[in-house]
Write a protein that binds this DNA or RNA. Structure first.
Lengths: 228, 228
DNA sequence: ACCTGAACACCGTTCAAGT
DNA sequence: ACCTGAACACCGTTCAAGT
């Protein structure tokens, strides 16, 4: 209809847009959301971008660096607490860490990468700053807070890596059942403490245990004897 | 010299011993100790045992199950605290978890597997029982102890997975340096709390931080408000 | 039952060569 | 500088066929 037509490439296939870091990353994000991180391979992204895998190495150092960038992109969606409402700092930390855990739980493979990655993206730094701010508002001394933020974020990441819904290795809950029955079948004489705690070891929902864990970590930070 | 000779196989190559679960596992352990977990592949073990990879599936479910067995074999070397010396339970827990962390740090890849694995081997159960016993000796209530042992062991595993000496992805300390400089270069106006804590975020040795973390977790368990 | 060869369906990364 | 095809050096797992 319009008199000006977009020039069409030879042989009337749609023009192949030039490669770029953003282009690679946005395809990576889409494939991750639609099919999971395990499908985000150099070869798959290359095919999606109509080129060979070697071409991606102009825009991406390697797979690990790309995972770090994907993690940062996910963190961008995290709603950070607004100002410094000192009253409910405790609920705010737990809520924030809970939200972070939930985001990672959608991509357990990425959580597993994040454990090894030492993320340093801009959104990750914002997250660390926000947690530090809340701990400060709660009156937790700076060294406790500095070391504590690592502990809190590590727990979130490890928990997400552990859960591994559908992603990960075949039947995750097959392993859980095996662990449950191993504990139940253990000789009570050889494992008296295991036997005493057997009903509590697997009690509670994931949600309850996550909030308990964050709460317990905050208690430990507030107690602040640490180190000795 | 001896009149009785061991029968020699045809063509005088050493007789190929029959395959067995123990044989597979002991080769796996040796390769892991000598060359790292990343070399423990089905194909490599098969070559070492002079057969094809398919043959191993008679004795091993899959790679994940073999990793679980390797982890349990490592835990067997862990010296568990002797009796119930209630006086120094705190030091005993920290020492035990420290030893566990150290064992896993030698095999970061295995630590990474262990995070997803829900181990249920006999030696792992002994370890859980020992930790529960020490927490009990310290007067920590059974539910706190039951949920706490997960938290403590998860921290040990995640820390070992994080450290990743030489194993793992290329240059681990390259990533650390990048994280350090990202924190140092972050805009102080945008990241006031990060800026305030910047010198403490990377302070301390791995050893100091590990002991601090375990200590802080125990403080949290002892405080015992958890859950709300 | 145990063992095997061969195949299936993939990987990340490098590198010489082109434009 | 950017892009490519082809290669290098591997993976875990399955399966039909043999013994």
């Amino acid at each position: 209809m319009s008199p000006r037509r977009v020039p069409v490439s030879r042989r009337d296939r749609p023009a192949k847009p030039p490669l770029s870091r953003d282009g690679v990353m946005s395809v990576a994000l889409r494939v991750m959301r639609e099919e999971g991180l395990e499908r985000v391979t150099m070869r798959r992204l290359a095919a999606e971008l109509d080129t060979g895998p070697a071409s991606l190495y102009v825009y991406v150092d390697n797979l690990a660096e790309m995972h770090a960038a994907l993690l940062d992109a996910l963190i961008a969606d995290l709603p950070l607490p607004s100002g410094d409402d000192a009253g409910c700092w405790r609920e705010d930390v737990i809520g924030l860490l809970d939200a972070y855990t939930r985001i990672l739980m959608g991509h357990p493979g990425l959580a597993r990468s994040a454990l090894v990655l030492r993320p340093s993206g801009p959104h990750y730094l914002r997250l660390v700053d926000a947690v530090l701010g809340l701990l400060h508002a709660g009156g937790i001394p700076v060294r406790q807070a500095a070391w504590g933020v690592d502990l809190l974020l590590q727990h979130a990441t490890a928990t997400a890596a552990e859960q591994g819904t559908r992603d990960g290795s075949a039947d995750a809950d097959g392993e859980v059942r095996q662990q449950v029955s191993a504990v139940r079948d253990a000789d009570p004489g050889d494992h008296p403490h295991l036997h005493r705690a057997r009903d509590e070891l697997f009690s509670g929902t994931g949600e309850q245990r996550a909030r308990w864990a964050f709460s317990t970590l905050l208690d430990g930070l507030a107690a602040g004897r640490g180190g000795d």
